[in-house]
Design a protein around this nucleic acid. Structure first.
Lengths: 151, 151
DNA sequence: CCGTATCCATTCCGATACTG
DNA sequence: CAGTATCGGAATGGATACGG
């Protein structure tokens, strides 16, 4: 009774995205992969989660085409987990999440992993939404096709 | 045994963000709120979830400062749920999620809710990451403070 | 080092029934 | 309309022990 509703095939792309990456561990694994981590133990140590959970998440991410496995770069018999283009494309989401978290969800300490612009040598706070004509967009500048029942 | 680890106070802003909005229903409620929905029944009908779950999520979002309640605009005895500034600030995340979903998570049908640029009258595909100097950023242009064990 | 296999507790989700 | 109360069941998270 009452299977949990899957949003994988939902018509809304936001719902589909959330179904793929709307999970804390998955997102943090992607974050760590963007930081250059690629080995099972690296993820496990850095995230501090149980190994079976990490296994599950890695498998799901591979099945989703976000990560892929390749022969270990150090010549060992194991594999590296590396981002696919689809996985690297999560980058804007990551930056948006980071900035929102910094602006609106405060933590006791300071962030341990600061995303920096390597060349400029400073923090990246660059997220902007531009329309095709170059104009900066905000919430007030956008609309969504209204729902039938809505006002 | 084994309480689920909370990331509310995690040092990483991405983890904190995911803890607040890294939930399908919460994100979709915010989406609908951005679409102009504000009444309990509107959310319930449009999302198709059980009322008790909607209640829980709305409460959490209010407690998180993402939504706030105000007297119903139609004069009824009930309340409207409207986005706070913190809630409206989720907009860039929403756009990033939408674009990623459109680009990489295909669905059988077409999207029902297309985010459009009202003035230009066309689809918004504007997400870009700019450094402070105006240069466009990608994954390759950024780095994160390396972890001790990495490398 | 890289997982797999159990096991248990908790949480969460959805349905339904009920109230003002 | 806008919730609350309750319940069964499913899924998940985490600990731990084990195997190649």
């Amino acid at each position: 009774m009452a299977k949990r509703t899957s949003l994988k095939d939902n018509a809304c792309p936001i719902a589909r995205s959330m179904e793929s990456i709307g999970d804390c561990w998955s997102m943090l694994i992607i974050r760590d992969a963007m930081m250059g981590l690629r080995r099972f133990s690296e993820f496990q140590k850095h995230l501090g989660l149980a190994k079976n959970i990490l296994t599950t998440r890695l498998r799901a991410l591979v099945a989703d085409g976000i990560l892929t496995t390749e022969p270990a770069s150090d010549g060992s018999a194991y594999q590296d987990y590396v981002l696919t283009p689809k996985g690297r494309a999560v980058f804007p989401i990551m930056v948006a999440l980071r900035q929102w978290g910094e602006d609106f969800a405060f933590a006791p300490g300071e962030a341990t992993n600061i995303m920096v612009d390597r060349k400029a040598g400073k923090r990246v706070r660059p997220l902007e939404l531009h329309a095709a004509d170059g104009r900066l967009l905000g919430v007030g500048d956008t609309a969504i096709k209204p729902v039938a029942s809505a006002g």
